[in-house]
Design a protein around this nucleic acid. Structure first.
Lengths: 122, 122
DNA sequence: CGGTATCCCTTTGGATACTG
DNA sequence: CAGTATCCAAAGGGATACCG
């Protein structure tokens, strides 16, 4: 039994999945790998998630120490999100999961915008 | 957008997490890596999960093609579960997740029974 | 701009009892 | 032995409206 941030895990894998397993978390982490993003930018990249859910996922990621939230005291407000060192260390894991997922889905080729959520409005 | 088994995924990572993300699935897959196990054997190894949940998770894993369920038409019934080839391919992923989880949890040393769920009754 | 608040539905997980 | 059936609680996810 392992403890971290007030949560209990039977094994380290469970802890990893707890942190990465949110519906939008892999996507968020993936897009942050290239640098900082503002709240509205993330929301534009993943338009199917509403602001409440996005906020929740971002706060959990922040609480778990994988992203860093920076608030600029300006009007209008500006908030930037970026990966922490721990967050950067999950990118290889995401790549491994992506490779396995591609194998599972029978996808042989990945284009650059692989993880982009291009949801039509229709 | 990817489709498989009637489910839709925005990215392969989401598909991977969908299959591995069940509360007991990583544990089940981990224990099956060394060979076949009967239903009751799995239930003994992971005593905190009840039979309904265990059945559900096993059926989902079977539906997703990562485990193979073999029923022996005997009295009393005998059912064995084993990893498929796809299932075997997730073991490295579990190891990667385990390593990352250990790093996250600050665990430096893994003992042999790492993933064993040793839940006391107290 | 970057969120909260409220309400609500669905999914997940579980306790208990029962069965071929 | 290997499950089902039933009922139920908690968590996850989401639509809409509002706020500093």
């Amino acid at each position: 039994m392992y403890e971290k941030n007030g949560k209990s895990y039977y094994c380290p894998v469970e802890a990893a999945l707890d942190i990465l397993g949110g519906k939008w978390k892999p996507l968020i982490l993936w897009y942050l790998k290239d640098g900082k993003l503002r709240f509205s930018e993330i929301n534009q990249i993943i338009p199917v998630v509403n602001s409440k859910m996005l906020t929740k996922q971002l706060r959990e990621l922040e609480k778990d120490g994988v992203i860093i939230r920076t608030v600029y005291p300006e009007i209008p407000p500006k908030v930037e999100y970026q990966l922490s060192e721990l967050g950067k260390s999950v990118i290889p894991i995401l790549n491994a999961l992506c490779a396995w997922g591609c194998d599972y889905l029978g996808v042989t080729e990945l284009h650059d915008s692989e993880l982009i959520c291009e949801q039509e409005n229709s």
